[in-house]
């Protein structure tokens, strides 16, 4: 049956449901069915990382998953990173402080990758920071201010 099937997920802490064809990827479900357009599409073949979300707390590429595969699981998108309305996570705030974006298109994926990194590693080195986003491509920033933002968010001196 290739017709739409019911898919239920928890997204940013809220149970959500959608009816979507099995071939619908997780990123398309989030964007087109659930109206969460913060997660972006850049390549649809698993290289650029713009579609990164947390799946049961771990960063994954939402373009490399069919939504049906993650039925019943918990997804966190960029819209769910702030602790509450009107506030920002330490990472989000650091991104603002350090000018860690320009067009903003890769930013949600970066924040997702780093949310996982700092949860596992309170004081990542520059090499570890770069490795955490080895699969998140950015064409605007040259990564320098992004690295500085994560150093800043983890209480370490920025590079330059």
């Amino acid at each position: 049956m290739t017709q739409p099937i019911p898919i239920a997920l928890t997204v940013n802490g809220t149970p959500r449901q959608a009816l979507a064809e099995p071939r619908t990827t997780l990123v398309d479900l989030l964007r087109e069915h659930l109206g969460l357009t913060g997660t972006h599409v850049g390549c649809e073949h698993g290289v650029c990382g713009a579609c990164s979300v947390l799946l049961d707390g771990e960063p994954v590429r939402a373009c490399c998953l069919f939504a049906a595969q993650v039925d019943g699981m918990a997804v966190t998108t960029v819209e769910g990173l702030a602790p509450e309305r009107g506030a920002l996570s330490a990472l989000q705030d650091a991104f603002l402080e350090c000018h860690a974006m320009q067009c903003g298109y890769c930013t949600p994926g970066m924040l997702i990758a780093f949310t996982d990194l700092v949860a596992r590693n309170e004081r990542p080195s520059e090499a570890e920071i770069r490795e955490a986003i080895g699969g998140n491509l950015c064409r605007c920033t040259g990564y320098q201010q992004i690295v500085d933002a994560v150093l800043h968010a983890t209480g370490q001196a920025a590079h330059g």
Binding site: T25, E44, H45, G46, C63, C64, L65, A68, Q69
Partner: peptide, 26 residues
Amino acid sequence: PIAGGQSLVPMMAMRLARPSVLVDIN
């Protein structure tokens, strides 16, 4: 069969692989 899908899903997105049934063993 599909497990992680990291290799299979991009192939399917490019329509290089087109199974009519996908069985999730993950």
